[in-house]
């Protein structure tokens, strides 16, 4: 079996998490005027960073978790979505996704270069 470098798998996972986070932020934005709605967030990177810093084996099988976020101040209608924060999160996430996609493209290009017989 051809072993892909481990960071290909890591990048795939990070792209997947980024996709999920985009979906969750979209859900928050769609519900910015829904009374009683509590914003959702995705937990993944903190745990990953802990594993990497701790020097232990990175578990790529762990699924990102979508949880309610009650840490923000609640408006009069019981909703705690901050539209500016969500847009910021959206942009940040998109830039991260772009970075991962670019890293992946570069990696594929390197591999193609290695395969080419000239």
């Amino acid at each position: 079996m051809i072993g892909f470098p481990q960071h290909t798998e890591l990048l795939t996972k990070l792209m997947e998490v980024s996709d999920i986070r985009h979906r969750v932020v979209s859900q928050n934005l769609a519900n910015v005027n829904t009374p009683g709605y509590q914003r959702l967030k995705v937990n993944f990177e903190d745990e990953l960073a802990k594993q990497i810093l701790g020097g232990s084996e990175v578990e790529l099988t762990r699924e990102p978790e979508v949880v309610k976020d009650n840490s923000l101040p609640v408006r009069a209608d019981g909703n705690n979505v901050d539209i500016d924060m969500e847009i910021g999160e959206l942009q940040r996430n998109a830039v991260l996704y772009q970075t991962y996609a670019q890293l992946m493209a570069t990696q594929f290009a390197t591999m193609r270069m290695a395969i080419r017989t000239e």
């Binding site: 985009h22 979209s26 934005l29 847009i87 959206l90 942009q91 998109a94 996609a101 493209a105």
Partner: peptide, 19 residues
């Protein structure tokens, strides 16, 4: 804001396709 999210999703999808 919703339009922005939709637009951003489109860009992300295009990036994936460019791979």
């Amino acid at each position: 804001a919703n339009l922005k999210a939709l637009h951003q999703f489109r860009q992300m999808t295009e990036q994936t396709l460019s791979l």
